[in-house]
Each structure stands twice: as structure tokens, then as C-alpha cells.
Write a protein that binds this DNA or RNA. Sequence first.
RNA 1: GGUCCGUUCGUCUAGGGGUUAGGACACCAGAUUUUCAUUCUGGUAACACGGGUUCGAUUCCCGUACGGACUACCA
Length: 511
Amino acid sequence: MKDVRVRFAPSPTGALHIGGVRTALYNFLLARQQGGTMILRIEDTDQNRYVPGAEQYIMDSLEWAGIKIDEGVREGGLYAPYRQSERKHLYQQYAQQLLSSGHAYYAFDTEQEIEALRERQKAAGSDQQQYSSATRTTMRNSLTLGAEETKKLLDSGTNYVIRFKIPENEKVVLTDLIRGEVSVNTTQLDDKVLMKSDGMPTYHLANVVDDFLMKISHVIRGEEWLPSAPLHVLLYKAFGWEKDMPQFAHLPLLLKPDGNGKLSKRDADRMGFPIFPLTWKDPNTGEQSKGYRESGYLPEALINFLAFLGWNPGTEQEIFSMDELIQAFSIERIGKAGAKFDIQKAQWFNQHYLRAKPDAELATYLLKTLEQENIECTKEKALKICSAMKERIAFPQELWEHGKFFFAAPKTFDESVISKKWNTEARQVLTAFRNALKEMNAFDATIAKSTLEQVTTTLNIGMGKIMQALRVSITGLGGGPDLMMIMEIIGKAETVNRITFALDTLPQHTT
RNA sequence: GGUCCGUUCGUCUAGGGGUUAGGACACCAGAUUUUCAUUCUGGUAACACGGGUUCGAUUCCCGUACGGACUACCA
């Protein structure tokens, strides 16, 4: 079996879409599993749509996600260059080959002439393709004009494109690794432009030429390419490369969470989740889109989530590291139907991976946030906070967002807790507890607990009845990590102050 | 419109001629937790429809419906 060589071939027209990340991932998994090569090829044949920074963004995104490139623009490789704009001469050369073998022809039709053809077909009620075996004889091209006239036009610098001459009434069958045999008749195909009038190739030509030259073994790409796959097969045949044709695998699409249709940036914005791996600022509009990274998603969580959108191992294991995915992956187990994008599941994965992180790593993150907020905190304290918080958060930023009370006394108190639990008994216990605390020297979570137990026993009031009140007096909230640990972390003096403040300011209900 | 592709719980999916149609997320309930969350236990919930083939079809075949992709000198 020939070496596995796969490529991810994005176009640098903007940020990398999350669906693109999944495509890259599947390619990568196959390459790694088979001991093959992962190639990043930049498909920048459309000069009008080129966006500065997009290429760098794509590479940064893949790197963040843990998808490593073996050959590419940055890495180099035996088949360089990996940027299609730098391979222009190659496409011209291969287009010439097709021209001389009679598989392609020059076309000189203007936009208006093409438009006129379209009108004629519309009037005739035809369902056929625009420029095809049925209509090419009526147009201005090297087939109808003859060699002499064609040469004259070429020499005079007339604009032209090179079109592929689709064979007449032929059945094209291709085997897709995911969908099985797909067949289509060439009467349904049109004479696609291979070389544009600016001298650049179209996707179809460049893609086939490069995949051949780069010895690509598997073309794994989105389902949106399935309709043009027969054209690509025809191209391989025309070049005489049929035996070296890569195997195709067209991936099911990522669908919007509600309703139907391809997942778009619009949907993501509307539903409030990222669509790009990293934050992206569109240089044209100036619009900024928050990425998965900046939203607190861990790369391992995103990868695990993405891997399961369209693929599954056939076992009941859900948690997979990249290495495990590499082991378990197989194209055969990729599904055929589109997968709706469920951000809740991504959050669950994130929560899982976040919990698995050592406290020290989370503490480093928290400390960085605190620095930005100009809040002092020792490493020991950060460690304790992370340990206390980690079981109840899904994103690292929640360490700070849900843990502000560790650093500042509450200014407001949860109304529903106050109305339900802030009563005479609670005030009694809190007062006694606060007074007892004042008297002591040593203080930690265990002491806080035993002290509170003593107080409640003495006053003969159940601990459950006053816990919420105590919590709200210290954190302002109705929920949070272990209260005794919170008191230990903020310290005795702060605990006493906060209880005192609450007793002084909150209404003295007598319920 | 045409071509191609698809259709199992709300979502991701397993399964496959005879199953109590399995798991996960979400949701709901109970337990535990002195509170919230965690954790644990349990629960609700699916084979798009119609014809075949067959002793038997969710599974195979054909239609229908629905959905999607494509239909550029964009990728």
C-alpha cells in the first residue's frame, strides 16, 4: 500500500471555520495513525479574495488545536512550494498538456456572451448546464473558431479562459470511502473553467495537479465538494493519472444547532458561541470575533468534541486524548449524515478536561487574571481557591468570575436567600459565631466548623437552618464552594468583618 | 428547476432481518452533601412515511416526503 499522504487545503480568505478544524483533524488523525504525512497547502488562487493575516491565522489555529503539520508553507518539504500562487507556472504547463491532448480548449466568450447563452437556455426551458457539450459549439472558442483564428486572438492579447472539455454522455463512477459508489452522467457536468483569464488556475485544476504532484493518497474534505468530485475524476483520467488517483472521503457537514443548514458564523453569533478557533479581527470590516481559545475552551476539549461530530469509535468510550483518537480513528466509522452543532456538549467536554487539570496549572491561570485586575494574591491562596472551585466550573475564567468574593467583601446580598433565610435565629448564631471567632488565635476550616458546631449546639439551632445565611453574609451568594474553606482562605479577620457588616446592614427580620 | 447526498431519543450517536433498540449531552426525579454545585441512583424520550422481499423488517429493495450540498473566470 502506498504511503499515506493527506492534505488540509484551506483558502486564506478569512479566519478558519470550526468545520475546517474538524476536516484538518480527520486528515491529521489518519496521517498519524498510518505513519503518514500531514500537509498544509494554501489555496490562494483567488487574488480578489485574499485576506492578509488569514494564512498566519490558519497556522496558528491548527497549532493551538494540536494539529501538527509535517509539510507546508512554514515547514517546507519535498514538494514545495505549498502556496498555490507560487505554483502558477505548473498549472499553466499542465493546462497546456490538456490543450494539446484535446481535453481542453480556449474560450474567448465575454461575460455578456455567457449571459446571453444563459438567457437563451432559460427561454428554451433547459435544465442543462451553461457551457457544455451541448452548447460549446455555439460559442466563441478554439473548437468553433479554428486554429488560425484562435492563434490570431491569442496573439492579439484577447482575454481567454481554458475550459475542460467534458466527454459526452459518459458515466463517471467514483468510490467514496464514506458514501460508497457515487455515479453521475457527464451530460450533467459543464465545461468548467480550468485557467482563469488572469492566468491563475481554478480550484479544480490546481487541486488535481497538486494532489497528484504531492502524491496525496487520500482526499478528505467537506461534503460540499462531492458534486465536483466527478469532474476531478475526469481530470485525473484526462491527465492519464487514473492509477495514481487519491481515494476520496467526503465528510458530512456541520449543521446549525436549530433548524437546518450549514453552520454559519451568523448562527454562532446569534446563539452566542464561537465559530473560530482563535479570536479574529476582520481586516476589512474591523469586526472582531471571539475565538474558542479566548472563550476558555481547552484545545483537548474542542478536539474531543469535534472528533465526535461525525465519527465515533463504536465503543462507549467518550473521552479521548489526541493519542487515543489517533489509535481509534477510522474513516469507515465516519457517519454519512450531517451533524448539528451542539455547544452544550462542547461545554461538557470542557468541564471534564478542566477538572482533570492540576490545581497548579489553574492557579497559574488565576494569578494571571488577578494581575490584570490588579489584585494581589499568593500562590498558596490561588492554589486553595482553584482546588475549591474546580469541581463547579466549566471554564477557567469562571475561577475569577464566580470567585470574586475571595478577594472582595460582597456589596450586595442575594435577595432570595435573604428573604428566606435571614431571620432572628440566623442573626443569633451569626452574632455568637462572630464573637467566638474574635476570641481565637488559630483559625482554619476545621476550627471554623467546630466553632460553628459549638455555637449551634449551645443555642440549640440546627446548622442547616443558618448555613445559607452565613454563606450569604460572607459571599453575598446562595451557592459556592465549601463555606468553611472559604473562611479559611479569606482568613479570620475578614470573616469577622464580613459577618459584622452583614449583621449591621441587612434588615433585622423577625420571621 | 436540475444533479448528487442524506434521514434511529431534543442533540451526538451504537446497533442491525427476530434486541426490554444501547450509550453520552441536555432535561426531570430521588439519594447523599449542615447550603448551592459535585457525586450517585432512577426516569421521560427515537427507528420519517408507503409499498414490496421475508415466517418475520427499524435493519434489505423501490417509491414518497422532508432536509442538505452543489449548480461562478470562489474555494
